[in-house]
Amino acid sequence: MPVQLKTLIPLFAVFIILFLIARHFLIPDSFGKYGHYRANSIDEIAALPINYAGKAVCIDCHDTEAELLASDAHAGLSCEVCHGPNAKHADDYEIKEYLIKQGTREFCGRCHSLNPARKIEVINQIDIKEHHPEKENCIDCHNPHAVWELKE
């Protein structure tokens, strides 16, 4: 064997062995359990906290509102569409600072302002500027939980 290789082959072998040792320690434990990824990351993602509590949790306590809501056109809506994400309130009833009580022309207009891209079969629409301009907000007349129970 040439003298050069007598030095080079052991040298490269050392490099490769060092790499394999480093590799052994650098690969995370759960890597490759299900596929070419860190299996623990699935659990980490699943364990992230929620912000929207979900309608089922809301109506557990707010049963009168739920009953009213179910009786009218907004029956399909989830509470947090209008009231905002409130998992914190669901955990601790006293935390109410994130609760939103909407009812402005702008907010209701997100769904109900005239837009030709909205199918009339799907959603009732009005001209939010022209519709009863003497009133300031939609909730001045409409009860959002039972929209056709109009206030006078």
């Binding site: 790499f19 480093a22 590799r23 650098l26 690969i27 890597f31 070419h36």
Partner: peptide
């Protein structure tokens, strides 16, 4: 960046 050597996909 070492991950590209230890766990190349």
């Amino acid at each position: 960046s070492y991950e590209i050597l230890t766990t190349p996909q």
